[in-house]
Design a protein around this nucleic acid. Structure first.
Lengths: 206, 206, 206, 206
DNA sequence: GATGAATGAGGATTCATTCAT
DNA sequence: CATGAATGAATCCTCATTCAT
């Protein structure tokens, strides 16, 4: 009857499914995410989900996709905010990485912690955007090295090291197995400080 | 007939279950680990597993326990090998951490990547040994600082940072999402190099 | 094609499940009542039952509920048939109690013989209707006492005594452990006669 | 080595099994009585039970047997205590019936509440002793009638009615579905009072 | 678009029982 | 006398998915 409302409702349902899945993901864990639970939570029939997603895998892929997009935007915002200063950009990128993880545990979970065996492989092409995020770090390191501000051996390798360290920080916090004697904020600051310290040539810069 | 073999058969089955579970864990992921699959793989009925383990949780706990033990031994061996030199000990500990992870992905998986929601909580007391591993790093950093060889702000925090970085390195390699342009060995060396470099006062030491 | 039949099919399955469960209950006993057996008996998959009932407990609760309803109606019919004569009402109530039990052994079974440990507790509120049945006897005794027709010490206690005697009569017949020398009908008549005789003041009334 | 101790131990084990089964019966209900649980409770292997009992049915039959014996003794004691007074004997028998039930719910459970479908039929011959208990009531009623102390129509039928009423009292108490406004003791007294009152000719006797 | 009905496969776990020792 | 090892059958229940409507 109301073509407009129908269309928007439809989009709303798709959104609703994705959002609910995200929330269930963080509250119950991936292993306990089920189509039925999503359906129950949004008040639609389980069948309806299949009108918007081919299956569970496709749904999760969409979530991964969204997460990749969000993270990409966050990184691009950092780049835009520090176009000329590779050191400050590096600092901001590290913080953005960790913040994204801590703020979006659901996305982080499926983007980086989900084993590929648990679902149909995420299409390789979609990982391109993810790679571009790493490239941002690579470029930043290269620029810092060129400007004599940062000591870089191999930009690719070093970017991976930074990436790994940040990833480790996020997941260690997630796993709640970190020593209680260490406050989360202190820990994050220390991690970023060490990374900066390790790559910056002149300490007075920071 | 062979009293000896008979006695050991029982223990063999237990071992067989644990090993099979370990392998399935890495090939199919924890979510897909089922008692039935284990049973099928070892050629026994599912019921038989319950003769050796109280349930799925107990089985996984046993695996975690074993992993903890292995890792603890590895760390203690490093400590024994470098009783007086905190810098070399630090280097060796980092390498031992990553090596353990790469050599025992199944153990690493359940020790550090398993979400606690997915199974009954691992008895707190059993984590003591895990904590002692962290303490080894803490002590090493303290000793390095006392001897003026390492620059440490807060030993607990710094040990956690190191821990996180190593953890990130291992898991990034596991996830196979690392840039292919980076060789694994180069990456590991770079990570350890950076950690050493970041904490050592006099670079001529390394 | 036949919208009518389609709609009712769903309800038919629900009915079919309930009826089959009821029959199995009486033939195999509660302990041997299983979802699979019900499913097999109606020619559906076990999963289908879960489309109509949340679980085994819910299914049994539905049966109890139905039984309570039937019995309540039977009692109300008796009350309506004898609005002014408490003695005849008492007689009819006793007979209705026993008749209900003998006519609906499956319902009686789950309503009164099922141990609560065997299933999730039947919601307390649902027992209200059951209590109202007892209250009908209480009121009848009170009325009989007020009119000087019946000798009652404490209406609550006496109603419970009546209830227990009737319950004992039904279950003794069920258990098939009654002496064969005693015909069922004779036994029932004797029980009701004794109850009447015991509570009525003037014997000429009966 | 110690033939004596061995033998007695063996008998002890049999006793131990029976006692444990009885206790489990009352705490967990018949449906939850399992060989494993019994074995675990007495600290023996499940297999050991099969050295003393052919199977679960045989074990329960033994319990029923014991219960029958106990009850028979209780009734015989009452008979011995009131050899000449059928009225007092009747009173004492009723009380003995209810007391036995309330004191030995485990025995009562399997003797009178267990459905025959739930286990292999209890050998018919073993019910003879049970029948003899009913006969005690029959004889008492007959004797009371002969002495002009009790009004009895048909001793068999009346004994069954008494039996049913007592059985109903016990099971209603067991089921915990009795109205809370009625105290157990009051209820039992009322039931026995009514039975006495109903069968005694001259009320001054009591 | 949306749904209710239906299912087969699989999940962990418990049970009574047998057998060789 | 006692046991450990082993099993097949059964338990309830959840899942992702399909199909006709």
């Amino acid at each position: 009857m109301q073509a407009e409302s129908d269309k928007s409702e439809s989009k709303d349902l798709r959104r609703s499914i994705l959002d609910t899945a995200r929330h269930l993901l963080v509250s119950d864990g991936y292993a306990n995410l089920s189509m039925r639970k999503i359906a129950r939570a949004i008040g639609y029939s389980a069948t309806s989900i299949y009108l918007h997603f081919e299956g569970k895998d496709a749904l999760v892929h969409s979530l991964i996709d969204e997460g990749m997009g969000l993270k990409y935007e966050a990184f691009q915002a950092v780049v835009a905010a520090h176009p000329d200063d590779p050191v400050r950009r590096f600092d901001a990128l590290c913080r953005a990485y960790i913040d994204f993880g801590l703020d979006n545990p659901e996305y982080y979970e499926i983007m980086y912690l989900l084993h590929p065996e648990q679902m149909a492989r995420f299409p390789a092409e979609k990982y391109r955007r993810a790679r571009r995020n790493l490239d941002v770090i690579v470029e930043t390191l290269k620029e810092g090295a060129e400007k004599g501000l940062m000591s870089v051996t191999d930009a690719f390798v070093d970017a991976s090291v930074v990436w790994a360290a940040l990833h480790g920080a996020v997941t260690l916090i997630f796993s709640r197995r970190m020593d209680r004697r260490v406050a989360q904020e202190t820990f994050v600051d220390a991690m970023i400080g060490r990374l900066l310290h390790g790559y910056i040539t002149f300490s007075e810069h920071v």
